[in-house]
Each structure stands twice: as C-alpha cells, then as structure tokens.
Write a protein that binds this DNA or RNA. Structure first.
Length: 468
DNA sequence: CTATGGCACGGATT
DNA sequence: AATCCGTGCCATAG
C-alpha cells in the first residue's frame, strides 16, 4: 500500500501493478529467469532485444552505451559504488579469460547449475589453468551428498596426470564451501572440516583421532568404547562426539548453504548470487562495482509490430491479443520497478557496509530492515521482500545470503570468537561478558552463552581438553 | 559457591 | 500477527 514513494518516476498505476511488483521483488534472479522465459514463450507481445557486449569485459550492455565499469577511470576513489543492473554473463568467461579456448569452455559449460557451479565460483581464481579439466571432472562426479564416489586413480588415469596433482585439486575443492565437498569418504570430509575449523578456533584434542580410528564408535554412539580407544573418560568421549556432530558434517552437501550454523535442515539448495560485488581496481580505496544480476540478457520490451497489428486483428482474437499486450506491459513495468528498488537498496547498503564488504564479519554494522526502509522511504515489507532469499557474492567470492547483512549480533559474535581464540586459559561466560564490555559491547552473561552456542563453542570447563 | 543451560517473558523485528 | 532475540530467574552439575 505504501509503495507510492518507491520511485518518483514509476508510480504503481493499478493494484495489479502493485501486487506483481511485490511478487517479483521476492523472486531470486534464477526464479525470475524461469518466469520470464515462460512469458517470452507464451506471450507474443513480449520481445527480447539483443544488446551489444562491452568489448573489454564482455558484460552485456543494456541501454546505457558506455560500459559502466570500463568507462570509469581507474584512479578515482568514490564513496559511491558503481551500481547497475547487469544480465548474468558467463562468469567463467570473464575471470582470467576463461573460455578463450574452445574445448575447455565446453567442458565447463556442461557443468550443471548447482553445487558444482557453486564450488567452481569459489575456486576459479586459485585454480591453475591446466587443472581446470581435473576440477571439472571431480565436480561433475559428485553425488548428491557432495562426496566423490569414484576413485582418484580413475581420474588420474583418464587425464594422464599424476595422482598427486589430482589430490592437489581435490584439496583445493575440499576447502571451498561447503567445507569438505569433494572428499572421497564421509571420514575424509570430517577431517577436512576439522582442519579448517581448527584454524579458526580451538577444537578438541582427540577429535582427529576419534574420526580416524573411532568412526564406528561415533556412529554407533558407543562412547565408553570410544573413550577406551582414546584413553579418556566416557563423559569426555560423549562431549567429543557431540562437538563433532554439532560442528562437522559427514555429508557436506546436506548442509545448509553459507557458513551460518543456525541449523536449517530443510532443503539446502546452493544458490547462485543475485548480486555480485567486485572491486574496480586493486587500490586500497577502490570504488565497488555492484551488479544486480538480471535474469535476461538483452532488453525486454513490447514488440512494436505486435502493437501495430492489434488494430487489424480479427475480432474473435482481439480480446486475447489485448490481454497479452496488457500482461506484457505490466511485466515490463514491474521489472523496471523491481530493478529500481534493488538498485536503490544496494546503493545505500553498500555505502553503509563498505567496511564489512572489504574486511569481513567484525565490521558488519547492525542495521534493521525497518531503519533502512525509513531511509529509503519505502515500506518495511518492501525491504523484507527484496532481501528475502537473495544471495550476494562478495569481492572475495564468498556467496552468502543477503539476510546476513541484517544480522543483529554477527559483529559481537566475531569479537567473541577472537577473544576465545586468544584466551590463554578458558574464560567463563561472565569473564567474556566483561571483556566484551571493554570492547564496547554491553551484553548480558546469558547472552554470551547463547552466542557461544550459536558458534558451536563448548563451555569453558570443557574447553580445557582442547587444542592440539 | 560458581558456571551453565532451560524456560519463559517482553519488546523489537519482520 | 507471528517470529526472533536478549535477558532474568531458577535448577542443576561440578
């Protein structure tokens, strides 16, 4: 109802317009792509016009002729991000000129649009050119759990390379999210996850051995036997087991997407980003380039011939044609509205969260959707819809839900992680709470406990037996 | 007695 | 209107 100030130039004209705008706003670009493809197929009034590519970066240009990225001088610093709606180009062909060679790009493009692509996005920049086919082979052979069920030997022999090289590629993949993806067994996945985790925070001393030697006991929950194996008490063994089951996942792809630990066991689909943020150049104060991924490449418009032909159409078809036309006009308008909203949303969000985007979790400024809505002079629900289910890709190529940007406590939890990582001997929740106050965060002791739980960190007493 | 987790309440957020 | 989140209080474990 309160959308009227959303855009000065595009006023919702009808309730239908309004309703559809809201619906479109909720859709991710992947979903929107399906919808538009369906409309294009069924509605003759719609027309998709090809538009030229930017010769330098291969972005497909909409209306604005100069490419917004390449035409920007490399030097300047600006608080204002370069922000625009861009059709999703093939990210591989842009990065490091992937796709220049024919045979390889075919192989890449045959990857299914799912987990494989998701992982590929992350490792692409670190992947040596010659190793691309190997990575592709591994990624396309994953099962639905994200594990590699075929043997590395087989791949090595197929490509005539050494086993070591395959293993290198595999370990690169394993360190991408979801952690442990591409492992040859659940056990290996657990070990990789444990290793990554141990770089961030303390982990129980015997965890690696428990996984290596006591996996049977772990899965059968026979903790006394596990304890006996490791030479620790049954209670400690039980704690160890709960640490493992809470923080590690033997089937990487069954995990939820993103690093969030808030358990969300319902279908964990890996998403392609709806918004891509990159740095314009390597300089310290580079402007950010924000691209709202548009689901269609080219410009969508009403076919002018269709409009002309409307008058001459036989009477019995006229009604149908008219409704097609109306529908098409509505869709185009609503799409503009959607883009407009997303652009404005990201505009202020990126300026506000620049620190976070560049430097990570600790710098996230807590902001509520409501406050942002006020600033942008749109209704709260508009922001909610725009944020829901969207994924952003940061300059470091991590893909995360946009909703993470509205996490009220992420920055405090990050500081809490740092405190615990630096602690000499385990601190009690009360002590941590005091330390946090020194950092300027006043949180209750009870809340510290909750944050700990969220991060999967055991209580102080049980942290004794930690660290290897 | 101290440290923690569970439950539940109230205010904020969606 | 429904949900989430921080907190206080209390029971329990060590």
């Amino acid at each position: 109802m309160l959308l009227q100030r959303q855009s000065p130039t595009l006023r919702p004209l009808t309730t239908a317009h309004l309703a559809q705008t809201m619906t479109l706003l909720e859709l991710t670009s992947d979903e929107l792509r399906q919808k538009i493809e369906a409309s294009l197929a069924s509605n003759p009034a719609l027309e998709l016009l090809d538009t030229p590519h930017c010769p330098q970066c291969h972005r497909i240009l909409h209306n604005a002729e100069p490419c917004p990225v390449c035409s920007t001088p490399q030097n300047p610093f600006s608080d204002d991000p370069i922000i625009f709606v861009s059709p999703q180009w093939d990210f591989i062909s842009r990065e490091n000129n992937y796709g220049d060679e024919g045979p390889l790009s075919e192989e890449w493009s045959s990857l299914p649009e799912d987990l494989a692509t998701f992982v590929l996005r992350q490792i692409a920049p670190e992947l040596a050119e010659a190793d691309r086919p190997l990575a592709a082979h591994i990624l396309t052979s994953l099962d639905e759990d994200g594990l590699l069920r075929i043997s590395l030997f087989e791949i090595a022999r197929y490509h005539h390379v050494t086993l070591e090289r395959i293993q290198e590629v595999q370990s690169l993949i394993q360190r991408a999210e979801p952690w442990g993806v591409g492992s040859s067994s659940p056990q290996q996945a657990l070990l990789v996850q444990l290793e990554i985790l141990s770089e961030i925070r303390p982990v129980p001393e015997h965890a690696a051995r428990a996984i290596n030697e006591g996996l049977d006991f772990l899965s059968r929950h026979t903790y006394h036997e596990l304890g006996r194996l490791l030479g620790i008490s049954a209670e400690d063994a039980a704690q160890l087991a709960s640490f493992i089951s809470e923080n590690l996942n033997p089937y990487p792809a069954r995990a939820h997407w993103g690093p969030g630990r808030a358990d969300n066991p319902t279908n964990p689909v890996y998403k392609n980003p709806d918004i891509i943020i990159t740095c314009l150049n390597e300089k310290e104060n580079t402007p950010l380039v924000v691209e709202i991924v548009s689901p269609y490449a080219g410009s969508l418009r009403i076919n002018p011939l269709f409009r002309k032909a409307l008058n001459q159409v036989p009477a019995e078809n006229a009604a149908q044609w008219q409704s097609d036309l109306d529908e098409a006009v509505l869709l185009v308008k609503c799409l503009q509205q959607r883009n407009n909203t997303l652009v404005r949303l990201m505009q202020s969000l990126v300026i506000l969260q620049r620190q976070y985007i560049m430097e990570g979790n600790a710098q996230l400024i807590p902001i509520t959707r409501a406050r942002l809505a006020e600033e942008l002079e749109v209704h709260e629900s508009t922001i909610s819809r725009a944020v829901a289910d969207k994924a952003v890709q940061l300059p470091n190529r991590k893909i995360e839900p946009l909703s993470k940007w509205f996490d009220r406590s992420l920055h405090i939890r990050t500081v809490l992680l740092e405190i615990i990582a630096q602690e000499v001997k385990p601190l009690s929740d009360t002590q941590i709470a005091d330390l946090l106050v020194e950092h300027g965060f006043s949180v209750a002791r009870r809340t510290v406990a909750k944050y700990r739980a969220m991060e999967g960190i055991l209580p102080a007493r049980l942290r004794q037996a930690m660290r290897s």
